[in-house]
Design a protein around this nucleic acid. Sequence first.
DNA 1: AAAATTGTATTAGAGTATCAGTACAATATT
DNA 2: AATATTGTACTGATACTCTAATACAATTTT
Lengths: 135, 135
Amino acid sequence: MQLHISPKDGTPIYAQIVGQVKHLVAAGRLRPHEELLPVRTLAAQILVNPNTVARAYRELESAGVVYTRQGAGTYVAEGGSPLAERERLRLLSVRADALLVEADHLGFTLEEAMEVLRERDAALRNERENSHAES
Amino acid sequence: MQLHISPKDGTPIYAQIVGQVKHLVAAGRLRPHEELLPVRTLAAQILVNPNTVARAYRELESAGVVYTRQGAGTYVAEGGSPLAERERLRLLSVRADALLVEADHLGFTLEEAMEVLRERDAALRNERENSHAES
DNA sequence: AAAATTGTATTAGAGTATCAGTACAATATT
DNA sequence: AATATTGTACTGATACTCTAATACAATTTT
């Protein structure tokens, strides 16, 4: 599991871990039920305190991205989180609004924004293909 | 200018102001060259320190959303910011990635995510229409 | 059963962000 | 020119975030 941490990036280390793991899961580089590195191992690898990794794992569990079994390990959860439809839509709308406001401000049309979205989606899917090929 | 501030929302007051003004501009409720409320007036309206509003206005100016003339006032800027194409694309891609990762995790397909995006865009445009009708 | 490995809990400290108080500078208005 | 109105700069107090240190609990392995 390759994580790239920038201690002085402004964004907290634990948040960087959360974001990158989410991205890895979305990209399929981490498959359901696959075990994440133990907190101490990952902590040693990226040179931070184990608690920092533990916090990231806790947040990921809250988000439904992973599940943990104390003494055993932390594993990638399967399927989407079982949230109510209304809540799923609300969460996605927040991101959509952010994208639209940013796009408008940057002078992109809706069509252009959607084109960018398609391209980024293709990039994500490409990562997924590569990761399957590797393993 | 109607702003809804939640002092204990977790997100800083100045950030709430920034976000809502950006949204208002994107929705056309604030037109180019329109004057924002003076820092003291808005501060009194939402019951915060003028400095907090001033900070928000400063951030908005850095973002190219408004321009300020000391002694005169703060006004909505026109057009998109004159950023390099590469930078514009990068900024939008950040939002797009966030949307896609979230969508994947929530179990939305790309098509569904794009549909949500269209709906939210329609909602934004609707706000715009209403604000024009009002004024 | 013992030891090793894993996640968890609690506490504390350093740093930073947030906001308020006050005084200042530039522009507009009278 | 004088006054009022606007944004700005500086300082400081408080609260909170982030990280680390240490000890604990549950599970797996030997």
